[in-house]
Structure formats: C-alpha cells, structure tokens
Nucleic acid binder design. Structure first.
Lengths: 335, 335
DNA sequence: GATGAATTTGTTAGCGCTCACAATGGAGGC
DNA sequence: GCCTCCATTGTGAGCGCTAACAAATTCATC
C-alpha cells in the first residue's frame, strides 16, 4: 500500500520513526549485539511499518562487497551442469549471496575472458566456473581475476579451488563391473579428450583394464551427443570387436543403443553397455541403462562451501564427490 | 600487473591522469556526445593505462538502477526451462544487463514470494518468471513487486508481460498429423493440469479431436517424468484402446516407449506416438520420436525483448512463438 | 560514593558515481 | 566591436549506507 510516488524509505526514515539515530537502525539490521532489547523491537517495528528494505548499492559501495557470486558456465542446459548450477544457487542463497550467471556458448579464451570481464564489471565477490574444459583452467590461471575462484573439475591450485566428482573412480567402477561379468574385450566411447571429464574417464577405463591384464585398445572419441553415440555405434555394430562398451555419458549411450537396435545387436545379450551420469531418463532407455551416478547438486553445494571458505580466509582447497554404480539391465554376464 | 594493495582506480584517478575533471571522464564512459575528440582519446588512454572499471554500486546508488534482471525459475535443469534461461541470459548480456537467478524447488506461494523478496533485496530492475505453473501467475498478481515482470506462459495483463510458445497450436499439429494417418482413437498422456502448458496441450488435443468429429475421452494425467510415462504406458498396453497416443512431453514419451517395448506393443506398427518439446535426444529414442519442437532459446530472447520494452516505456505486451512438428519414425499410417 | 569498565547510542565522514547547474571559449550575425 | 548561441568543460551536492570515533549511560567494584 506504499505510495509509489514517494521514494523508498531509507535508514533515516526508519530512525526518525523509531526515535533513534540511523546508526542504531543500521546496528539492528546488521544484528550487532550491543543494542538494547527495547530499542531493537522499536526499530524492527518501524522497519515493518515502513516496509523498509536495505539498499544494496549503498551497502556495496561502502563495504566493497556485492554479496554476489558469478557462475560461469557452458552447456548449462545439460543435465550435469544445470544441476550443478542449482546446487550452487541453493547453497549461495542459503548463505545470503546472490547468484549471477554468464553462459559461454562456444568455449574459447575470448569467451571466457569476456565472461570474467562481465563479472568484474559487476564486482562479484567470487566466481564459480562450470566449464569442464581443460582450456578453461589455463585461461583462468592466465587471467587471474583477483577474487576467489572455484572450478568444477579442477584439482585445485594456489589461486583456484577445485570441486570434482572422482571420474577415474567412476570409470573404474564401471569397468570392474564388466570384468566381473566375464567380459575381456571392453571398448570405450570417450567424450572429447580436451574436456577434463572426458579425459579422466578414459584414463580410468584404461587403468582398470590394465590392472586386470586386459587390452585398452578399443577407444573411439565422441562429442557427448546422442548423435555421435549413434554414428560410432553403427561402426561398432559392424565390427563386433568388443562384448562390452563403457560409454562416456548417458546421451551417447542412448545413441549407441539406438544404433545397436537398428543393427540387430541385442543389449545385453550380445553386448553389454554402461553409461555415465545417470540422468533421470536413463532408467527408461531400451534397455534400462547401467550407469555411473554423479550427484551434481552436491557438487554445486560443495563449490559454494569452498567459495565461502575462500571468501572468509582466502585459502584454496579441494573436494571430491564419490560416484556410484547403478546396475540396471544393459549389462549381463558374458554368455 | 596492478598493485593489489592499492585500491582500484576511480573516476577521479582517471581524470587526474588525463588532466580533466571527473565529470568529463564520466561523459566519456557514458558516451555523452559533447566531448571533443582529443579529450575523449586522452581519457580513453588514461582508462586503459589504469585499467579503470566503473564501480557498479556507486552508479546504481545514484541512478537507482542495478542493470540486473532476476530470473525466477523452477525445473531449471529440464531441457525447456534451462534453454529459456540461456536465451534470456544471452539477450540480457547483449543489452548490457546482468542476470541473477533464483530457483524454486517446490512451487508454492511462499517459495515464489521468497524468491521475489530475494530479488527486491537485490533491487533488480525487472523479473523474468520461468515457472510454468498456473499458481505462479496468481501469486505474481497478488504480490506485484512494483517492477516490470515478464512471465513465460502468461497471456499478459496490465502488470505482467507474457511470452509463450503456442501450446494449443502445437498440440493441434500433433493430433492432425495422427488424424491424417487415419487414426481415430487418439489418446493423450497429459502433463499436470495445474501447469499452464499441460493444460494448454490437453485443450489443443481435445479441440483438434472434436473439430474432426472424434472422441476426446482417452486422457491420463502424468507428472512430466519418464517414470510416469512408463507407468501409464503399462496400463495403456494392457487396454489397447487407442491406436495413437499424443504425449505431453518427450520424457513421458520415453517411458511410454519403454513400457510398450516390454509389453510387446510395436511402435509405430501397433500404436503411433507423438511427443512434445523435441529434446536433442528424441531423435535417438527407439524408435526415433515424432514430436513438436519448441524453440526455447528464442522464447527466452523474446522475454528479454519484452523486458527491455517494459523497462523503457512501462508498457506490457505479449509475444507468441510458433511450434513446429518434427516427423520421425514413431508415427505411421493406421494399418 | 568515587572510579573505572562495559554497554548503549549518537556524530561525522566518505565510499564513487551522476545530476543539475555554472563557467568558459570560440563562431557567427549585426 | 559587441552580443548571442552553442559546444565543451568544471563545480558542488547528494544518492544510502557503514566505519570510526565520541559521548552518554549503566553497572560493578572498592
């Protein structure tokens, strides 16, 4: 019901109404301990009556803090990054921070720099980077924005905190499961190798095979999309070199399943398939997909934990989220 | 290379270096026309040398504008909302705005109010709402935040601009396609009816059937998830009442295809299926899904167009994006 | 009751910017 | 030469808040 012509109430207006100084009102707002109970209640009443809301700009101007975290992301419409963003947002809002986003369409130095500039223009207090691309980390080291940075997939450094799901371990879980089922020719449809996760999963696959004394020669690189899984799957169906395929993500797995279905290759009777991510849909593929689950929201929350720590004491750190194997119907014992 | 101990350069520092007043520097930054070429160049040089960056807080304090748009969203990890967000972000950044997000986990009045409060605390200049839930619009009318609001799915009103994909038309495209293929018993797996899109698609389905003199009695309501599509699909496979199913979205379609596959119902030989959304994966379902494409990024950009208009002249407006039928292999002529 | 310490409240300055207005100087008309 | 007009530049104030300090009040202690 406030008169919309009048300017918004400010500290001084509240102070006048409560019969105190503006500084006392400021103390109440900032929960400063040394305010008597009576005064506090009077001020709080005045705040409620006037519908007072603190002016962020004025506060930021004097404190030199914007209470804003910038999230720099690419592929933000994909299941993983999108949920990581949600995790960050939740933790940030709970901690009293605003979340600003900048999406990078094509990953390049210029695009990353642009986004960082954008955030610096906004004077964010810190930047969370969800661009799981190796080049991004290099760009970040180079461009060091002078504020705390937390990067997903980074191992952590002097200047950058890192939060990651243990991709190697996830890949090992998947491959070991296949080995236990009796498979000894296990191929891999990898994600792009200049993506941190793509490379780490391929390494995990390779390491698990070698640890079991098996060959790691069946690797093809896709681009994460269902389309690339399909194309590669057509080739694989013709060759029939492997009896099991560990796929870099669920979307490529979907394409692979489609190609196998068209070619008459039965899953899991002829070939077993394991994906990575565990999107909500993966349990409804034909057949339901055995895959490695990553808790992306948790990852996002961890990012924010690291950010808060960096904001508080300037220290960088690293955190690792454990993946989990979800066994469904796309894998079976070798006949 | 700036000395990180020293405070950041400000207008006055640039002015001193360029030998002009701070106001002249301000004019250069704001592209005011009445500045001589020589002065402008001198100032620009000084800005570059010092690495000057305008302080947003100070600017906001005096202009009473934050150059920030708040995006209030739910289901932000889903394909549609996520891409709409990306469209908004792109258009906003191009227009010199920052984008702040607030995700609503469970749609309720309180959660919506909370998010609006959050944005008002931040003094955003406008709010884009991507919560395609009927109750949201009511909450918005009630809570009228006093700044421009653009809502996805809204028809527009005195206070709220609306941007939407024509859902009814999309549903009609789907149903007419099925009718043309000779189907006359066409069922619908609807989205939740308290979701704007869910209701609009059901209406379009119903309208198209009635226009063709067909019955619209085969409707079941799901919850958008693949799981609900699967459960409903099991029932449908047992009944076999319809020869074609129009499904409210692609995810439920996936579940339906899975259930039909398990039950030995062949798609499209026995039953045709049409989805809605056209996610990137839909072309790799088994079989590839005929569906209705929505251009979510365009929708997001349109939201921002409306926002800029509202910000400029305070007027609300409405815009409609046309959907498109994508025919793949899940539909066929009735045998 | 005097002394010092702790608690509560008030006063002042200034964060960095834009706005309104004032001042300066050169071009052009009579 | 004088006056007007316009383009260009400068001056002063103030946006709303917090930090630092100062003042007033209460309380405990000897």
């Amino acid at each position: 019901m406030a008169n919309s012509n009048a300017r918004l109430p400010r500290l001084e207006d509240v102070a006048e109404r409560a019969g105190v100084s503006h500084q006392t009102v400021s103390r109440v707002i900032n929960k400063h301990p040394n305010v008597s109970k009576a005064t506090r209640e009077r001020v709080e009443a005045a705040i409620a009556e006037l519908g007072y809301r603190r002016n962020t700009a004025a506060r930021s101007l004097v404190t030199r803090r914007s209470q804003t975290i910038g999230v720099l992301g690419s592929e933000l419409s994909q299941y993983g990054p999108a949920n990581t963003l949600l995790g960050v947002e939740q933790a940030a809002r709970d901690a009293g921070y605003f979340v600003s986003i900048a999406a990078v369409r094509t990953v390049s130095r210029e695009a990353i720099f642009d986004a960082i500039q954008h955030f610096l223009d906004q004077s964010v207090d810190g930047i969370v980077v969800i661009v799981p691309h190796a080049e991004t980390l290099l760009a970040l080291e180079e461009q060091a924005p002078g504020i705390p940075v937390v990067a997903v997939g980074a191992s952590g450094s002097e200047t950058v905190s890192g939060a990651m799901v243990d991709q190697r371990r996830g890949a090992e879980l998947a491959v070991r499961h296949l080995i236990e089922q009796g498979h000894d020719r296990i191929g891999h449809i990898a994600g792009p190798q200049d993506w941190i996760d793509g490379a780490a999963r391929a390494e995990g696959w390779s390491a698990a095979l070698r640890a079991a004394g098996l060959a790691d020669d069946l690797l093809v690189e896709g681009d994460w999309s269902a389309g690339s899984g399909y194309e590669i799957g057509r080739g694989l169906a013709a060759e029939r070199a492997a009896t099991a395929i560990f796929v870099g993500n669920d979307q490529m797995s979907l394409g692979l399943l489609r190609a196998f279905n068209e070619a008459g290759v039965r899953v899991p009777e002829d070939v077993s398939v394991v994906g990575f991510d565990d999107q909500p849909e993966s349990g409804y593929f034909t057949p339901p997909l055995t895959t490695v689950r990553q808790d992306f929201e948790e990852l996002g929350r961890r990012c924010m934990d690291l950010m808060l720590a960096a904001l508080a004491n300037g220290e960088t750190a690293t955190t690792v989220v454990e993946p989990e194997l979800v066994i469904r119907r796309s894998t079976a014992a070798l006949a």
